[in-house]
């Protein structure tokens, strides 16, 4: 044993001493329970989902449960309702992420300067993020969007605008709630970015004759790049999974006008009881999210790279 390992250690050089095998396990054991717990809670359900996605499994047909190959995937991908849900998800996610990012950036820029009561304002601005999504959705549905008692119609009535928001603009309604909820998150990331800037660099730019807008565009924005990327990525991953707002406000309707992917999967599993197809759709969504997130990040990165 020793004879075999000697040349190995010699090659590694004097500074990095690899611990012996037994020692390594002693070091790892304390981490093991956590690791096992995470695997049990996340990977086992996912593996079950993958398993069901290849089964012809429908709760209404107790005799079902045979291996179905990729038939579920074929049916899901061929389903026009699924494609409709994909389109809705894209609109919903892109709309909410971009809007909340823009608003968050604007608020962060305002919060970045000192004024009396800044701490209070910051706390108040963060609160929407602390409200439970279901509660927020319910609140918006009943007190903002309601065609008769809603605040939105009341506020817009002087301009002659009145609408049954949830019925006439279902996607927009959901996007607005999500934007309201996610703006604080974006704001915090942008604020962290702004405050990590060297004040001397900003002063140097001012002395170099840059006007405030030029300072923002040429100095601050390139610095914020990484923070924008992070915000886009995290925001997208979270908002793709939106279920509460759709369920509470529009129920995916009218018709399928605001059904997004999570709601589609919910309908498949708990309204149509087609577990197989729902599982297949779930697997597709997970895979697609991963691919899209990675791809989007690349594109965004390269765009910024050219910019600077």
């Amino acid at each position: 044993m020793t004879a075999q390992t000697t040349p190995d250690t010699a090659r590694r050089g004097p500074t990095t001493r690899e611990p012996a095998r037994g020692e390594r396990w002693i070091r790892r054991t304390p981490l093991l329970p956590g690791l096992l717990f995470v695997i049990a809670m996340t990977q086992i359900p996912f593996l079950f989902t993958v398993y069901y996605s290849f089964q012809d499994s429908n709760l209404l047909r107790p005799d079902s449960g045979s291996f179905a190959g990729i038939a579920n995937y074929g049916r899901v991908l061929g389903d026009p309702l699924f494609r409709n849900a994909v389109a809705n998800t894209v609109v919903l996610t892109a709309g909410a992420v971009l809007l909340s990012l823009a608003l968050g950036l604007a608020l962060a820029v305002l919060l970045d300067r000192s004024f009396p009561g800044r701490g209070v304002v910051r706390t108040l601005l963060i609160t929407p993020f602390l409200v439970m999504p279901v509660a927020a959705a319910l609140l918006w549905k009943t007190s903002v969007y309601h065609p008769v008692y809603g605040l939105l119609n009341w506020a817009l009535s002087p301009f002659g605008i009145e609408a049954d928001w949830v019925n006439d603009f279902p996607l927009l309604s959901v996007v607005m709630v999500l934007t309201w909820q996610w703006t604080p998150f974006m704001m915090l990331i942008m604020l962290a970015g702004l405050q990590s800037q060297s004040p001397e660099v900003l002063e140097a730019a001012r002395v170099d004759g840059a006007r405030p807008l030029a300072v923002f565009r040429r100095i601050t924005f390139p610095h914020l790049r990484r923070f924008v990327e992070l915000a886009l990525l995290l925001g997208t991953i979270y908002i793709v999974q939106t279920f509460d707002a759709v369920y509470m406000i529009t129920q995916g309707g009218p018709g399928q006008a605001s059904t997004n992917l999570p709601y589609f999967i919910y309908l498949q599993a708990f309204r149509a009881f087609d577990v197989g197809e729902a599982a297949a759709a779930g697997v597709i969504v997970v895979a697609a999210t991963l691919v899209v997130a990675m791809f989007a990040l690349r594109v965004v990165s390269s765009l910024f790279e050219e910019e600077s």
Binding site: S198, E200, E203, R225
Partner: peptide, 10 residues
Amino acid sequence: FQSYALYPHM
């Protein structure tokens, strides 16, 4: 400036 304050991305 003492820290030079160069624009890091340029």
